[in-house]
């Protein structure tokens, strides 16, 4: 018990554990652990520069205001665009990472981006298809009943929320569109 100096139930002996567990104790000496010590100056990273060459900044790149400058290498996957881009640009330009507003604006930008992108996709030959994109059609190949029920899964208590989270914005968007169209048409 915790009320006396030693653990009442001692761990199994090293010999017993070594016989039962492959490799038991191979890294018992911290010196054999590659993350020890946490900070080391003797590692060869492969870098052959003091400061890396700078990647050309072809499009102006947003950055955290906690950085002195745009990092010498950066991702160019999806440049800022549209209303979501304006929200994100403001979040980066105005608020540091220490401010909740920074992250909440970025989350808001994500939701606006989703709406913009869904709307834009409707004008293309490859519109968003929530049925195929959610993978829901694969359910029947993956044992949906056996996987979920009779197994004490804790997540079943909130699974019902998932369809609402996926379909909710679509239904809400449709409802708003209908309301706007009716208002534009005016009273009859």
């Amino acid at each position: 018990m915790a009320y006396i100096a030693d653990k009442p139930t001692p761990p199994p002996s090293a010999d017993e554990l070594r016989a039962r567990i492959p490799g038991w104790g191979a890294d018992v000496d911290p010196k054999d652990r590659p993350a020890f010590p946490r900070e080391r100056r003797d590692l060869d990273s492969g870098a052959h520069w003091n400061f890396p060459d700078r990647q050309p900044e072809i499009v102006p790149r947003e950055r955290s205001i906690e950085h002195k400058f745009v990092t010498p290498v950066f991702g160019t996957a999806q440049p800022l665009a549209g209303l979501s881009g304006a929200i994100r640009r403001y979040a980066y330009a105005r608020f540091s990472e220490g401010r909740a507003a920074h992250w909440l604006l970025l989350l808001a930008g994500d939701r606006v981006d989703a709406m913009e992108s869904h709307a834009r996709s409707l004008l293309t030959l490859h519109p968003d298809n929530p049925v195929t994109e959610t993978g829901i059609l694969s359910e029947f190949r993956r044992h949906p009943i056996r996987s979920r029920f009779g197994r004490n899964r804790a997540d079943l208590s909130h699974t019902w929320l998932d369809p609402i989270l996926v379909a909710g914005p679509w239904l809400l968007g449709g409802w708003v569109a209908v309301k706007v169209l009716r208002r534009l048409r005016g009273p009859r």
């Binding site: 100056r41 870098a47 950055r63 990092t71 010498p72």
Partner: peptide, 18 residues
């Protein structure tokens, strides 16, 4: 990186220092 903290590199993420 010079101290082995490769997951905390300061030269590759313009969007966040954390």
């Amino acid at each position: 990186c010079a101290r082995g903290l490769y997951s905390n590199c300061h030269n590759v993420n313009a969007n966040a220092t954390a």
